[in-house]
């Protein structure tokens, strides 16, 4: 008598049910089946965007606070004619560019040290330091900087002992950029680290044994090979920054708004869904275009689907 385990019987049952629900003839479409949840999710997003597109073409009647029945481009005309929105859009873009550059400059050596260090405790320390901020939300971290850099904060208190200050270090554009860089750093390191791990250490050793200086090895060997990670982290950091809401609220002092803050204001402060939708769609199109340009110029990095030359 064969001893056929119960778990095997269960698996047979599952297979039979699966065969019934998804016959062998359909197996070549299994990939699409697995994509269905993602497609549904994206479909929901597209439906939301379509709804916002419709809303963006309707004007708010301030006597009834209802949107107009007729379609109009007035909300988009507002975006073009009112300089506030251009200012805010340019501020968001400028900050996103600056934050991306600064974050990559800081993240690369961190990721490199973390991956290449021979010391287990140093790697652990770097990993813990990297992950610790993930347990603290963005808003809390931003408020933390108020405590550290405020007029009566730790830094100004220390400076006062030296007879200096107090200095205004928060509620300014630089403090906002500083807060964003600190927030984005772990994201960037986590995206760069796998790219560095994938670089064969012997390539670096070979470069140095052929007489290249550390700088030349970095420039001609490590950076080109780490490019996929750098591109991916640039895209992520840029996108997260240009759409950021919380940091300008907490560290911007109210006069350094990003476009996301303008979207919030339109929806929630002045109850103008049409204007809010127009702003949101403009942000989506603008940010997507910039990211597409970045990917076009630098390649898809680790976001690429397959190595070049094997695509169909």
């Amino acid at each position: 008598m064969s001893r056929y385990p119960i778990t095997w019987r269960l698996l047979d049952l599952v297979e039979a049910v699966a065969a019934l629900l998804w016959p062998r003839a359909l197996h070549r479409y299994t990939g699409w089946l697995l994509l269905l949840p993602a497609i549904a999710l994206v479909g929901l997003l597209v439906a939301g965007l379509a709804y916002m597109g419709d809303s963006s073409l309707r004007l708010l009647d301030t006597e009834t606070f209802e949107q107009s029945e007729d379609y109009t481009l007035a909300n988009y005309r507002d975006l073009i004619e009112k300089p506030t929105y251009f200012t805010v859009l340019m501020r968001s873009t400028g900050a996103a560019t600056l934050v991306t550059v600064l974050t990559l400059v800081l993240a690369f050596p961190y990721a490199y040290s973390m991956v290449r260090t021979r010391s287990a405790w140093r790697r652990k320390l770097l990993l813990v330091s990297l992950f610790l901020p993930f347990f603290i939300g963005q808003v809390v971290r931003a408020y933390g900087w108020l405590v550290v850099l405020g007029k009566t904060g730790i830094v100004n208190t220390l400076l006062a002992h030296l007879g200096l200050g107090p200095f205004k270090m928060i509620y300014t554009y630089p403090s906002l950029v500083f807060g964003l860089v600190q927030y984005m750093l772990p994201f960037a390191v986590l995206l760069i680290a796998p790219a560095i791990t994938a670089i064969d250490e012997e390539l670096e050793a070979a470069s140095e044994s052929l007489g290249a200086t550390g700088w030349r090895t970095l420039r001609h060997v490590i950076l080109p090979l780490a490019k996929p990670g750098l591109v991916a982290s640039a895209v992520v950091v840029f996108t997260l920054t240009i759409t950021d809401y919380a940091m300008p609220v907490v560290l911007g002092g109210g006069t350094n708004d990003f476009i996301a803050n303008a979207v919030y204001d339109a929806f929630f402060r002045i109850s103008d869904n049409g204007l809010g939708s127009a702003l949101a769609l403009t942000l989506v199109v603008f940010a997507s275009t910039l990211v597409a340009v970045m990917l076009g110029l630098m390649g898809a990095g680790t976001l690429g689907m397959r190595p070049s030359g094997r695509g169909r």
Binding site: L60, T62, K82, P83, T255, A262, D265, I270
Partner: peptide
């Protein structure tokens, strides 16, 4: 006038 006033205020303060 909330929308108009809000827009003017923001225009000044965000400029």
């Amino acid at each position: 006038n909330e929308k108009e006033w809000f827009g003017r205020f923001k225009q000044i303060m965000q400029g």
